[in-house]
Design a protein around this nucleic acid. Structure first.
Lengths: 115, 115
DNA sequence: CTGTTATACTGTGGAGTCCGAAGTGGTGGA
DNA sequence: TCCACCACTTCGGACTCCACAGTATAACAG
């Protein structure tokens, strides 16, 4: 504001922070059911695929599968496979996943109250 | 938990809260650039379309336009149009929008630190 | 020995959504 | 006259999401 003659620079800077290259995690969370999924997994110590499906019946299994794979790649969720028959796979939040979930909870709870 | 013999019901209930019908706001936020956009608008008293574009250069104008329309319908953002030439339109968060932004900030800040 | 069950996915095809680039309209300045 | 300005739309193509069906394996019932 010191020099009103120069136009504002067309940066993506907002009060010192830039949301433009908000890279990995936000893009991963900006998908359908992603935030709900983090919250659901975080509400338990570990969950099996079928349990997750039962908790989020509005999402298809292929979508859940994709989200979990994305979370694993983003380091939010750990996948543990037991070589048993029938197969057993358990999902749990990593430390980073818990960090995300903690910050997500207030938002989810507020939106719930509004609906 | 009173009866361990009955299998758990296949509801979408998680510790008393159900994330399945998390309808309006979360779906609105679960789109590309949506969370960033709320944060950007909330960082100012009011913003014009071109300014928003300058703050989020990675998103196209059509995407920004759609998000803003969705936010307006969801009651998160207010749109004020001035009948001037050249046209001027100002966007600002509503009270609900500010509620969302407050709960969004910790998440965005954390993801920024990780990148 | 056959058929059923259980689990955790993956494949498919169609509908829906998202994307960037280019265009629109009206006016004021060069 | 012609271009810049501003806030969007429109467009075609790419991507995403969905329901449904199918895969592999072995324990178990009859």
């Amino acid at each position: 504001m010191a020099d009103a003659t120069s136009p504002p620079e067309p940066t993506c800077d907002v009060d010192g922070t830039c949301y433009c290259p908000l890279t990995g995690v936000i893009n991963t969370l900006s998908r359908k059911y992603a935030m709900q999924l983090v919250s659901i997994v975080g509400a338990h110590e570990s969950l099996r695929f079928g349990e997750i499906e039962a908790h989020l019946t509005s999402a298809s299994s292929s979508t859940i599968s994709k989200r979990l794979a994305e979370f694993e790649e983003a380091g939010l969720v750990s996948r543990t496979q037991y070589n048993e028959i029938p197969p057993r796979v358990e999902y749990a939040l990593t430390d980073d996943g818990h960090e995300v979930r903690e910050r997500l909870e207030p938002l989810l709870q507020w939106t719930e109250e509004q609906s």
